[in-house]
Design a protein around this nucleic acid. Structure first.
Length: 412
RNA sequence: GCGGGCGUCGCCAAGCGGUUAAGGCCCCGGAUUGUGGUUCCGGUAUUCGGGGGUUCGAAUCCCCUCGCUCGCCCCA
């Protein structure tokens, strides 16, 4: 009998954990510089929260949630974190804090989907949210920080796509116009698009089916897509965002067909994709969700945010190598070695040793294979004189040192 | 939910119907009872994801099943 990690999940092994640490540290540093505070919410919430928050016309809610019932209570492993953060925002009355409130989070999310490159059932997201600002200056800051972060990680081949999907009112009008334009040719669209036509016609614009894309680019439909149907205030909001992005020298592409799979978005939506990823090429996705706080029972509060898929990030960036071990103690006296190791560690030096007091040559070999910078020899001769032998494994030089000299010698 | 590819030691991998299942890496031991990263020698799969079947004989052929993987869909 052998066990495997469940489908779509992955162990993060010791050899890769430093990449996580590296990315998380970079994120924290950057976010804190911009006054974002970390928030940690539970990995499960009431199912109702996601049905309301994420939207029950979405695939996420309809077929991708890990839901379980306990004592008549339906709970769900979070498929994304905005709903949870908004819930916490409301529950703790954070709207009364001096605004705007800027939060960031990281952690595992769960979606029941067929795994493939860049898609897992348990995956990790890093995200941020800004509450209380209606002005696109908040959208711009959110985008700027996302781009800055990705650039700091040395990612190349990134494309920022933006769009404005209007507010609930003008979007409904837009939906109708799109439906009207598509209706004459509806029969030629794919099966999925027929469903979308009724449930969420805007998502037809996002269909990857070649035939559908062809149909969408016919003049009759394309002209409708490209005409501005969003209302004056929404247009103004979008124009202002573009000005901010120009001010910040952030390149973008306007993609009128960009809609997002979550129902809570309004106005600004954006996506950062990489040409170096497979078919799951979105590294970051987000947008504005002004109605959500109210939808979930809080006071009317505009908000904007984004999330990044950490596993997708890893496949794109190179992290610096792990720090080598400073000292490996070579000794045939396990007691002395253990004691010495704990003493030296007090000085902030990383130390390991062979627990089995093996042959001298074997221990030296181990020291070398471990990648330690120094071998510290403590055997009969050293115990007698009280002086230790410190060998630099890169140069081969060795010298006698007193225990007190070790921190200085090692930290050169 | 629907397609395609793949499953031989911890990892990489030969073998493609004939019987002790190559090889490399890693690991362990020795050459070398106080000096490693090089070298040399030795050790580690009763077994080929699992279950049936065909056959005198199967890792090799057939069926079923499980797992992994890539793509569709959707998204981070």
């Amino acid at each position: 009998m052998s066990y495997k990690a469940p489908k779509g999940t992955k162990d993060i092994l010791p050899c890769e954990s430093y990449i996580w640490e590296y990315i998380e540290k970079k994120a924290r540093t950057l976010f804190e510089k911009a006054n974002y505070k970390e928030i940690r919410t539970p990995v499960f919430e009431s199912t109702e929260l996601f049905a309301r928050g994420v939207g029950d016309s979405t695939d996420i809610v309809n077929k991708e949630m890990y839901t379980f019932v306990q004592k008549d209570r339906s709970l769900t492993l979070r498929p994304e974190n905005t709903a949870g953060v908004v819930r916490a925002f409301i529950e703790h009355g954070m709207h009364r804090l001096p605004g705007p409130l800027k939060l960031w989070y990281k952690g595992p999310m769960f979606r029941y989907e067929r795994p493939q490159a860049g898609r897992q059932r348990q995956f990790h997201q890093l995200g941020l949210e800004i509450f209380g600002i209606e002005s696109p200056s908040a959208d711009a800051e959110a985008i700027q920080i996302a781009m800055k972060f990705l650039n700091e990680l040395g990612l190349a081949g990134l494309v920022l796509e933006i769009n404005n999907i209007g507010c609930p009112e003008c979007r409904n009008e837009y939906k109708e116009k799109i439906k009207e334009a598509i209706r004459p040719k509806l029969r030629e669209f794919c099966e999925d698009c027929h469903l979308r036509f009724e449930k969420n016609p805007l998502r037809i614009l996002d269909c990857k089916n070649e035939k559908c894309r062809e149909l969408l680019s016919t003049p009759e439909i394309d002209s409708v897509i490209n005409r501005e149907f969003i209302c004056e205030p929404c247009v103004a909001h979008f124009e202002e965002l573009k000005e901010y992005l120009k001010l910040l020298e952030i390149d973008y592409v306007i993609n009128k067909k960009l809609v997002r799979g979550l129902d809570y978005y309004n106005r600004t939506v954006f996506e950062i994709t990489s040409t170096n990823l497979g078919s799951q090429n979105a590294v970051c996705g987000g947008g504005r969700y002004d109605p959500l706080v109210e939808t979930l029972g809080g006071p009317q509060t505009p908000a904007v945010g984004w999330a990044m898929g950490m596993e997708r990030l890893f496949s794109l960036c190179k992290a610096p190598g792990q720090k080598p071990l400073d000292v490996f103690i070579v000794s045939d006296d396990t007691k002395e070695a253990l004691k010495l190791a704990s003493e030296i560690r007090e000085h902030g030096i990383s130390v390991d040793f062979d627990f089995s007091a093996r042959k001298f040559a074997k221990q030296m070999e181990k020291a070398s294979k471990t990648g330690a910078r120094f071998a510290l020899i403590l055997r009969e001769e050293e115990l007698k004189t009280g002086e230790l032998t410190l060998k630099n494994l890169a140069t081969g030089n060795q010298e006698k040192v007193s225990p007190g000299e070790i921190p200085e010698k090692v930290n050169i």
